[in-house]
Simulated assay, not measured.
Amino acid sequence: MLETVLLKFGLDISDCLVLPVGNGLINQTWKISHRNREYILQKVNTDVFKEPNVIDENLNKLKSFLEQHFPDYIFVAPLKSPSGHTLIETEEGAFRIFDFVKNSITLNTAEDAQQAYEAAKQFGKFSRLLSGFDASTLHPTIPDFHNLQLRYNQFKTALESANAERLKNAAEAIEAIEQQQYILQKYLDILSQKLEVPLRVIHHDTKISNVLFDQNGKGLCVIDLDTVMPGYYISDVGDMMRSYLSPVSEESTDFDQIAVRKVFFMAIYKGYMSEMADILNATEKDLFIYAGQFIIYMQAVRFLTDYLNNDVYYGARYETHNLDRAKNQIRLLEEYTEHGKDLHLMIEQIGDLTNIS
């Protein structure tokens, strides 16, 4: 398979060292060493990204903008093949190739607050540099990806069709989700523009493994750009809150270990705002803490919905896997909300956001 693909990119597999890399769950990835150059080859998962050409078009638009306005920024965009295409579609699938960023590393988890700061700064920088780009010209690569209204409606539909045993097992989690509907209501206020929150170019998948770091732990740029599309900034900030704040992951069933590490919260705030404080409007800034509630709640809803639907989306390693994931996120949401006043006070004590460094 790869021999034909590499030839289309002008590379002879007999002259290449090919190694599978990464632990991503979506796309298939290989590192290609060819003479004095290194590349990353990816096969796009078309089960998730139904129209890979849409991603390709988005990335080429963004690349053109950044090359014109911020040529020094490391934008890891697909390279052109000898035929001039940045996406090669074959019988085996859709492929693209990137330059490998030398002397860069990735992290699987945010192990300390400085790493969280650097990651948040890079995601903020990405949106800041693209704040002059018309987000409406980008295609949604996963329609309704962070549409909380849709996710809640799917949850309500699942309640109507779920079997009695799963409804009984999930009764406490269902009640917790329904008690937190104010989070949905605030999102509806954003959609209706009762709250003035503009569409921006947003990454939508801000786990720390989507940041490249240098050997000294400094952030270089963001990667895995397939989910870049129009969105609200709360998606990026909220996903960092969900991913970085707790010392245990969404897979943990030791719920007593779930906690909000306030030093990580402040690292996210300072890192992101060091880039975006001059870009966000007053309403957006007021929603910074809400961003965490928004994404954590939505993920809890999605896990619970899948459990009620017999695990048809995420799959499950054991019968209550998605229910346990939902309970994990509900507990994180409760911890996060409980500390809300403290988090507000910490932000207030920083003072003028534009002077963060």
Rank of each mutant, 00 (worst) to 15 (best):
P20Q: 13
P20H: 09
V21M: 11
N23C: 08
L25G: 05
Q28W: 05
K31Y: 03
S33N: 08
R35S: 12
N36S: 11
N36L: 07
N36Q: 10
E38D: 06
Y39H: 03
Y39G: 01
Y39Q: 01
Y39M: 02
L41C: 07
L41G: 03
Q42A: 04
K43I: 09
V44C: 10
N45H: 09
T46F: 05
F49K: 11
P52I: 08
N53E: 15
V54A: 14
I55R: 05
E57G: 05
E57K: 11
N58H: 05
L59M: 14
N60M: 12
L62M: 14
S64Q: 13
S64W: 03
E67H: 02
P71T: 09
D72A: 13
F75Y: 11
V76D: 00
A77R: 03
A77W: 00
P78Y: 07
L79R: 04
L79H: 04
S81D: 06
S81R: 08
S83M: 08
G84C: 12
L87Q: 02
T90L: 15
E91I: 02
E91P: 00
E91A: 10
E91T: 07
G93E: 03
F100I: 05
F100W: 14
V101C: 03
V101R: 02
L107S: 06
L107E: 09
Q114H: 13
Q114R: 15
A116K: 01
Y117E: 06
Y117K: 11
Q122T: 00
F123S: 04
S127E: 10
R128L: 10
L129V: 06
S131E: 04
S131A: 12
D134N: 15
D134G: 07
D134K: 12
H139G: 05
I142D: 00
I142Y: 00
